[in-house]
Amino acid sequence: MPRWDRVKASFFDGELLADSFPRLLDAFVLDVMIFVWTTPFILITAMLIAIARNTRAPSLFPVRIFAIAYTDIMRGVPVILWIYLIGFGVPGIGLERPWNSPLLWGSVALGLTYSAYVAEVFRAGIEGVHESQRAAARSLGLSSAQTMRHVIIPQAIRKVLPPLMNDMVSLQKDVALVSLIGPIEILRQAGIDKAKFANFTPFVGAALIFLSITIPLTRFTDYLLSRERERTGGSRVR
C-alpha cells in the first residue's frame, strides 16, 4: 500500500484525534439528548399508529385510513427532506422564540418519520400474535382494548425487540441529520474541525463515539432477549 502513509496522516492523526476528541464529545451530548427525547415520542406515536391500523370495528375505518396514509407518506420521503421541510418550514410561519428553533422542529421531523417506520415494526408484531390468543382473551370476557393491552401488545413487543432495536440504532445515527439545519452536534463539529485542520481524523473520532454507544446498545438488547427466553421458555433445542 504505497499511499498508506498519506491515508494515515489525513485520517488517523493521533495528535489531532486527542485534540478534537473533547470537542466532539461535547457536541455528542446534543445527539444523545435529541435521541433521548425523540425515542419516547417515537415509541408512543408508533404504537398508537400501529393500534389504529389494527382496529377492527367497521366504524373506525377512517382511523385505519389515516394510519395507512401516515405511514405511506412519512416513509415515502427521505428523512433528510422531512427535516428540511419541517425544520425550516414550521418556524417559517413566524413563530416566536423559543418555538422557532430548528433544533426543536428538526427533532419533531425525525420523530414523525421514525414513528412511521417503528409503527410498521409494531404492526408486524401485533399481527404476528396468533389469533387464538385473542380468542382466549375475549372468551374470558376481556374487552378488545384489554385484550390488546394485556395479551397482544406485550407479546408483540417481545417479538419485535430485535427489529425495533435496529431502528433505534439507526435513529441514533440519523440524529446527525438534524445538524444540516443548524444545530452543532457531533457531525457538524467534526466538519468544523476537519475544515480547520484540513484533516479527516475528526470524522474517525465521531465514528468511534457513535460505535461506543450503538454496539453496547445492541449487546444489551441481546442480553434482555436471552434473559426473557430463559425466564419463560422451555428447554431449548441444541
Binding site: 387464538s132 390468543q133 380468542a135 382466549a136 382473551a137 375475549r138 372468551s139 374470558l140 370476557g141 376481556l142 374487552s143 394485556h150 395479551v151 406485550p154 407479546q155 417481545r158 419463560t232
Partner: peptide, 19 residues
C-alpha cells in the same frame, strides 16, 4: 363481555398466555 363471563371456554391448543 357479560355473556363470556358466564360461559368459560377451553381450547384444543390450550391458548395460554405465554408471557
Amino acid at each position: 363481555n357479560p355473556v363470556r363471563r358466564r360461559v368459560g371456554m377451553v381450547f384444543q391448543s390450550y391458548n395460554l398466555f405465554p408471557h
